[in-house]
Amino acid sequence: MGYMLEIKNLHASVDGKAILKGIDLTIGPGEVHAIMGPNGSGKSTLAYVLTGREGYEVTEGQVLYQGRDLLAMSPEERAGEGVFLAFQYPVEIPGVPNTTFLKEALNAQRKHRGETPLDAMEFIKLIRRTIKDLGISDELLKRPVNVGFSGGEKKRNEILQMAILKPTLAVLDETDSGLDIDALKTVADGVNALRTPERSILVITHYQRLLDYIVPDRVHVLAQGRIARSGGKELALELERTGYAAFADAAA
């Protein structure tokens, strides 16, 4: 099997403003990559381009997912094909219970893959098992999606969705920010549980703290819309010491 994800010379702009200016990145199956970089460098933009958010216009370049043109697919097709984004800012959906949302999403994806939908009982069993593993309270399931959740609860909820949906390529956009150490471990456990030779994970963060728990195969520094440097996991430690100033200067 070839690559999980190949990003070639990707340029993208928002509102006519160029944000990504030639990204090259390749992720193999089973690999965990980390993208680090200063605020505003385009990390979330990359995540949104990969998932097909409206308003993020690709002006040049190509993205292949399992050898196929990812950019040609609608957001829900990408999800159905196994691309998952844990949002930096999870969205509130008033009136829609968390469980309903999860069930609709899971069954939509199962349908996309030609599988039969789970019935209510099977689904409840699955979800009970999962929340126990993740230490999420029952009560959170009944509340409307993300409405009134604390920052930490929202991030855990993203991980819960990931655990239920079992994506092939998971992109985590700053899922660690604002979490206390226990929550951080929960998130890391959730991600590590997903680590198999068939799955790949892209972790976006700007602290190396999370990488103590999710050990990456490769680390990339995104600065000013480009991958400024790539290296092994030791690069994260180096960045922790030196900060991103060097990259800002270099690109300026």
Binding site: T51, G52, R53, S74, P75, E76, R78, A79, G80, F84, L85, F87, P90, V91, I93, P94, G95, V96, T100, F101, E104, A105, L106, A108, Q109, H112, P144, V145, Q161, L165
Partner: peptide, 19 residues
């Protein structure tokens, strides 16, 4: 958000409006 989780545009509208 709904579409990223796999719902079609129409199902996403139905879900959000039902909420």
């Amino acid at each position: 958000y709904c579409r990223q989780r796999g719902l079609s545009q129409e199902d996403a509208v139905a879900l959000v409006v039902n909420g």
